[in-house]
Amino acid sequence: MAEVPFIAIEGPIGIGKTSLAKKLSNHFNYHLLKEIVEENPFLGKFYDDIDEWSFQTEMFFLCNRFKQLEDIDKKYLRANKAVIADYHISKNMIFAKRTLQEDKLEKYEKIYQILTTDMPTPNMLIYLNASLDTILDRIRRRGRNIEQNIKASYLAQLRNDYEDYMNAFEQLHPDIPVIRINGDTTDFVQYQKDLDCIIEKVTNHLHLRVE
């Protein structure tokens, strides 16, 4: 039996992960897994003072994502039901390495390794990225109050961190296809043709998996 599709979408803050996940979920009739963001009680404080609130913020995200993936595995993947997620739990280490001081990072990484040892791994990744100007514009347009204090310098660092991470991911996991989408030239929210192009790429990879 072919492995049930489990697709994760990744990329920096504001790039459009959830919007694309919703559209692909509707098109393919896959269960949609959305990460918990605004429910994090530490996030607003984090954007005001990263050093002070980074550990609490990252631990909240890690524990919630662990619980979400545990539930998804039991209720959907093991029941051979396809899932599309607007995140990959390994993103936690991207943020942790950027925001946590060395002593706290060491503690965090130990907990991360314990929690994620048996987590289901996506068998396809969609990576969205764009220039800093595009990312800032999209954050402004979606208008989340909690994100208005994000520093442009932090987003620029995060964008570069994602590039490094994805390059390393492709080397470490050559068996997991990565579809790269340039957010500067692709707007799948406003233009159906851009969305259709992404759908075609995903469909082609799905067909390759079952051949």
Rank of each mutant, 00 (worst) to 15 (best):
V202Q: 10
N204Y: 15
N145Y: 09
R144H: 08
R144P: 03
R140F: 12
T186E: 04
P12K: 01
I176V: 12
F6D: 02
Q113G: 09
A79E: 15
R180G: 00
L206R: 11
K34D: 04
Q171P: 02
I84Q: 02
D73H: 12
D187C: 09
T134D: 04
E35G: 12
A8D: 03
H27M: 10
Y154F: 14
L43V: 08
E200K: 15
T117A: 14
E170M: 14
E106C: 12
Y112M: 00
Y165E: 00
D133V: 07
P41W: 02
I94R: 00
K201I: 11
R159G: 01
A21I: 12
I199R: 02
F61G: 00
T99R: 05
T134M: 13
H205E: 15
Y154G: 00
K151G: 12
A21D: 14
H207C: 12
A152E: 14
E35C: 01
Q56M: 12
P122A: 07
I114W: 08
K45F: 07
A168R: 10
L125W: 01
G14S: 02
T134Y: 02
P41A: 11
E58L: 11
A130W: 09
V202E: 07
L20G: 08
N145V: 11
D86W: 09
D48P: 00
E35H: 02
G11P: 08
Y165K: 05
L158V: 03
D49R: 04
N29K: 15
K23G: 06
L206W: 04
H207D: 15
Q192Y: 05
Y112F: 15
I111G: 04
E38T: 11
K104H: 12
E39N: 12
P12S: 04
A2N: 12
L132S: 05
G11I: 01
K17P: 05
F46N: 00
T186P: 13
K75I: 13
C63T: 10
E147I: 01
R140E: 13
G44I: 02
